[in-house]
């Protein structure tokens, strides 16, 4: 019998995100969305009483200082997003050297650098990730998110774990454009996408 092979991996929104313009067709798109594929993700939870040592080790090994408030800190394509007391989500961009051997390379590297200081778990496949921007992105997100994204209240680097349209999400602001990255549990990608399409339709949605 023929050699058994695995077909290529499928991202969470692969079957949902149809490229092009959706909703209102006139004028520039109010909301622009792009699936971030190939991110490596890992949860990092500090061992009992070792949060400070963990931060120091993280800085020493990766040049990133994990925040102790809901913030995202980043360097050279590797980010650490505060997700709770003593908990962070490490995010490596697609193509980051740590992920050369696969997305779980990030977790391996963290485990090595933070041995005895943190429990590290690969989550690269557990989330779907979207990058959202456009002049009406805040108005569209307001239809599902209770969070105040006004520039006085939420700035680039700010992060939050919250609910959007009844679905758990983790998000952070990338820049003042504004651009937001948003993670959703993979299984909910379909429901989240339907909500996003419906909510952005009146502003015009461009899927990149």
């Amino acid at each position: 019998m023929a050699e058994i092979a695995l077909s290529p991996p499928l991202s969470a929104f692969a079957a949902l995100a149809r490229h092009g313009r959706h909703g209102r067709a006139e004028g520039p798109a109010g909301v622009v969305v792009e699936e971030l594929r190939g991110l490596a993700l890992a949860t990092v939870i500090a061992r009992k009483g070792r949060a400070a040592d963990l931060a120091a080790a993280c800085r020493a090994s990766f040049g990133v200082e994990p925040a102790s408030t809901p913030r995202r800190t980043a360097k050279d394509g590797l980010a650490v997003v505060w997700s709770g007391p003593g908990q962070w989500l490490a995010v490596a961009e697609k193509g980051h050297p740590l992920t050369a051997g696969g997305a779980d390379g990030l977790a391996d590297a963290l485990r090595g650098a933070l041995a005895g200081l943190a429990s590290v778990t690969d989550q690269s496949d557990a989330r779907g990730a979207l990058r959202l921007s456009g002049p009406r992105v805040r108005d569209a997100l307001a239809k599902g998110l209770a969070l105040d994204l006004h520039p006085r209240a939420f700035r680039p680097g700010d992060a939050a774990s919250t609910w959007c349209a009844l679905i758990d999400v983790q998000l952070w602001q990338v820049d003042a454009a504004p651009t937001y990255d948003l993670l959703v549990a993979r299984g909910f990608a379909g429901s989240f996408w339907h909500w996003l399409e419906a909510s952005a339709a009146e502003f015009g949605l461009e899927v990149r």
Binding site: I4, A5, L6, S7, L10, S124, D125
Partner: peptide
Amino acid sequence: PSSYGEALARA
């Protein structure tokens, strides 16, 4: 890993 879930089922 979930990205390979469908691939594994088919395999």
